[in-house]
């Protein structure tokens, strides 16, 4: 496994373009012979090992991000990187759009339609990865879990 902090940092800069190149051949079932067509972009993220989850490498290459996630609600409950950030390849998103949160936080996502929320997303108030509940909302929602 390549563990290169520089490359990982670059990934953050390049965002989706970087991870796009890392789409591995899809592990196909026997006899299927199917492969994902990787989007062709600049290679930056090391090849992804389908036998691991993102957090296995990122604990070393982006320790602060990993630690914040691990200590937060999402880390405790095993809501892993790809739930918010999508898959590798063209589906990778650097900053999760609010729709990505709807699975567990439907009411909060619906509340984003209110005019006072114009131009904001979840991470405007909840620090990414740590995702601590922000002070104002706590009394109202009982804490964003």
């Amino acid at each position: 496994m390549t563990r290169n902090f520089f490359i990982a940092s670059l990934t953050v800069v390049l965002g989706m373009a970087a991870l796009a190149a890392a789409a591995p051949q899809r592990p196909a079932a026997k006899g299927r012979g199917k492969t994902a067509a990787p989007a062709v972009v600049k290679p930056a993220h090391p090849e992804v090992d389908p036998a691991e989850a993102c957090d296995a490498c990122h604990a070393e290459v982006t320790p602060q991000v990993h630690q914040e996630w691990f200590a937060g609600r999402h880390g405790m409950n095993n809501v892993k990187c790809f739930v918010c950030h999508g898959s590798v390849g063209a589906d990778f998103v650097r900053r999760a759009p609010v729709e990505r949160c709807i699975g567990c936080h439907g009411e909060q996502v619906a509340s984003m339609a209110h005019p006072v929320m114009a131009g904001k997303d979840c991470f405007s108030c909840h620090p990414p990865h740590l995702l601590s509940p922000h002070r104002l909302a706590r009394g109202v929602t009982g804490g964003a879990q």
């Binding site: 892993k80 790809f82 999508g86």
Partner: peptide, 15 residues
């Protein structure tokens, strides 16, 4: 689960 893009790339191979 192997048909979900995010999951096909994660922990699918038995080690």
């Amino acid at each position: 689960t192997r048909n979900c893009k995010e999951l096909a790339n994660t922990n699918l191979e038995s080690m």
